[in-house]
Design a protein around this nucleic acid. Structure first.
Lengths: 206, 206
DNA sequence: CAAAAAAGATACCGATCAGTAAAGGTTCGT
DNA sequence: ACGAACCTTTACTGATCGGTATCTTTTTTG
């Protein structure tokens, strides 16, 4: 086995462990939040020691940021793979459904809108901000087109629609429905989509 | 001055300080969240010392719980004072507007749905749970009546509508609109009400 | 099988924070 | 003016946690 192959094999194993760490962190962030998640938790959940953990990520902030970046990449990938011939509303609904399903499987999306500390931490990271902005721009274009076609209401400014849309991905109603009501994931997704686009009073779905 | 009057005066001052502490805690919970709020913060913000603080509340959890209880009482008071001849949708809209305005003035409502730790802490407190349940029952009656009259959609279960309604009081879109968009409080309230009841696609308001 | 590299365990450091103890001031009523 | 609560300041304890150094064990390689 050549030295190049050896190195790449090592690197591969290293990357695999890194993904395991990111997975564990995602679960822990979803369940405990940033403040209450400890690096010992992460190491334990990912099945490696704390010192080894610090071989991958130089700090807790760095680790959490990488998790968020990976999630944004997931969203961007989803959008890129989406059938471009879909209407604006269908595209927004599709992405929202993707995010909700990730969440229902313990996967956290999206905004750590909850903690100003975390928000500040993320906005200091260029790689995160770049992706967030890219996603924002793409969604804004979709929103504009949606208003154009009458699929989205025209009486509200773009940013109000967008922020509301983002908020739906991390709507706590999902947690409550999952916890207290006994609904299937499909039911929850359907209800959340219905209420997001047509509201509590409920226009008929298009 | 009789001894009774003296004691009641003392008690009055004590209660005033207590309210100041609760106010400070409300602000701090809104801005930093439970985990990052320290008791030194509270003492400093309320203008008293930490040991004195512990004369009022036996623990940080106790303090935060009292804040949430006071907020629930505020909501219950608002509902009780509301014109009972209003329609269900108008009543829900009125309470939501009240909650949003409290929030826009730095006042926190409602659910600390964010942190499982906090949620667990609250559900262990009988006085909190009693009020939450009372509010829940009242809102459920309003929701049922709303469906009856066709003011709320009938294709979703009551709890889905209720959880969604609760979520709107702590919708992060409010923070983003306040932070990044330059809207007046009135604008934000109007937008949030519109999107809550009629959704992103926007049925016309009734 | 021997040597080297990497991972693990353990133990530690320093900082933060909830909660407390004990000191000195301040404000009351008497 | 005097004394007794009460409040405040200061300092402390104990626990937790982020991050690191050291040593041991395992694995890999030649």
């Amino acid at each position: 086995m050549s030295i190049i192959a050896k190195l790449s094999f090592k690197d591969q194993a290293f990357k695999l462990r890194e993904q395991a760490v990111l997975d564990a962190t995602t679960r822990l962030l979803a369940s405990k939040g940033f403040d209450l998640m400890t690096m010992d938790d992460v190491a334990g959940e990912a099945g490696l020691s704390k010192p080894s953990l610090y071989k991958h990520f130089r700090s807790k902030e760095d680790l959490a940021t990488e998790v968020m970046i990976r999630l944004l990449d997931g969203a961007l990938d989803f959008l890129a793979a989406q059938d471009a011939s879909l209407g604006p509303r269908a595209r927004l609904a599709g992405l929202l459904e993707w995010a909700l399903r990730v969440r229902l499987q313990g996967g956290l999306p999206f905004l750590p809108s909850t903690s100003p500390y975390v928000r500040n931490m993320l906005t200091r990271n260029l790689r995160y901000v770049t992706r967030a902005l890219k996603l924002h721009k793409q969604l804004e274009r979709i929103v504009v087109k949606g208003k154009d076609r009458g699929e989205l209401r025209r009486d509200l400014p773009n940013d109000a629609l967008l922020y509301t849309y983002y908020s739906r991905t991390c709507d706590p109603a999902v947690d409550y429905l999952q916890l207290y009501g006994k609904y299937s994931d499909d039911d929850i997704v359907r209800q959340m989509l219905a209420v997001s686009f047509a509201g509590l009073s409920g226009a008929d779905p298009i």
